[in-house]
Design a protein around this nucleic acid. Structure first.
Lengths: 212, 212
DNA sequence: ACCTGAACACCGTTCAAGT
DNA sequence: ACCTGAACACCGTTCAAGT
């Protein structure tokens, strides 16, 4: 996943699509330097403009981060969908497991995107870009919820509130990812090799709890 | 929980216990201004010393944060233990539920401590103060694991690897807390009033999955 | 309408010098 | 042994001025 940032031409005064270039620059900084490496000034420099130029397109750093998070959400949702589609077993439970594996795999492959997507500056604002960010988040959640609804209907899952059941599955998977990428599990010897098996075991516990 | 920071006396040249004062100052900054408000310089100012003074006691900001996280862990563990002790129902399942409620309640009451405790700079280093931080984390984990072992022995939980079962419960609770305090659930209308009931519902799903 | 350059108030970190 | 003050390289943000 190599990211291309369109630089302003040195002889030009205007960029053309600075907004988009800054978002791409942000994704690149996250991928290469992590969450700490993402700054307005560094993004501006990658785009070849002065450090004040971003303020024509984003109210503040939070607005840029929200735009980056929105883009990150699309990558995240796509990765999860891909894993689901790849499941040979088409039962709801199998596809839920695939979704969980996709979730964990995205988090470990792109921890900085994952942290940004679920990070604090993004969701606690209600500022500019909030609506389309919420929409991107809802679409991602819709993938999970859709599977749960399907499972309730065909009897693979117990009857109940789909949102509550979804939240249980989401919380378990999300919590595991957080503990994993923050290194909290490292002292316990949980490394890349054991993640896949562990994820399946965790999801299995939950499946038993959500069975009819 | 009011935090007292011992300031250096203006007429004195040395502080006396600057290390401890800086940790207290850090906790105060976290409580009052959140994670963003915690800086070495601000902590130094609260302690009444110059901004370079902390470097006599901490190698860098990460080392101070680790020391603060260690103290936060003690508060966290104590809060969970208190909730467990308060449970009238002394079955393992009831005490596990109490632990879960204590976990969530600490996260919502002290989000900045919670984020610091489980945040990235703390666990991914291996730097100075790492060992005693790990110890504080292990003690916290031991509370959960102890209950799980007891449950397996008396048949309230299914037989299995205690660490795996603990991880399932931990992940579910932790993920719910993260989604909650990062505001990810706010658009769904999950507010303070509904948290307690929701927590119980989530833990119940898991209990079913971990039943014999 | 869009961008630049200087300025301001913050950071973390280093280092010579002071007590 | 412990702390200070100046310095450096970074931040986010604002604003008058340039194109």
């Amino acid at each position: 996943m190599s990211i291309r940032v369109v630089r302003k031409r040195a002889d030009a005064y205007q960029h053309g699509d600075l907004r988009r270039a800054l978002v791409q620059a942000g994704l690149k900084l996250l991928a290469e330097k992590g969450v700490e490496g993402l700054s307005l000034r560094a993004a501006a420099e990658l785009a070849g403009v002065s450090h004040a130029a971003p303020y024509r397109h984003f109210q503040n750093k939070g607005a840029l981060v929200a735009a980056i998070a929105e883009e990150g959400f699309r990558l995240f949702t796509a990765a999860m969908r891909k894993e689901i589609d790849a499941s040979e077993d088409r039962t709801v439970l199998a596809r839920l497991r695939a979704a969980g594996q996709g979730y964990v795999s995205f988090a470990t492959k792109h921890p900085a995107y994952f942290r940004t997507i679920f990070g604090p500056p993004v969701w606690s604002k209600g500022g500019p870009g909030w609506d389309s960010l919420i929409a991107a988040g809802e679409e991602s959640y819709g993938v999970l919820r859709g599977l749960v609804v399907e499972g309730i209907e065909n009897g693979e899952l117990q009857a109940g509130d789909p949102d509550q059941i979804s939240l249980a599955a989401w919380s378990l998977t999300h919590g595991f990812c957080m503990l994993l990428i923050e290194g909290r599990l490292a002292p316990k010897g949980v490394g890349p090799a054991t993640v896949r098996g562990l994820t399946d075991a965790l999801l299995l516990s939950l499946e038993r709890g959500l069975a009819p």
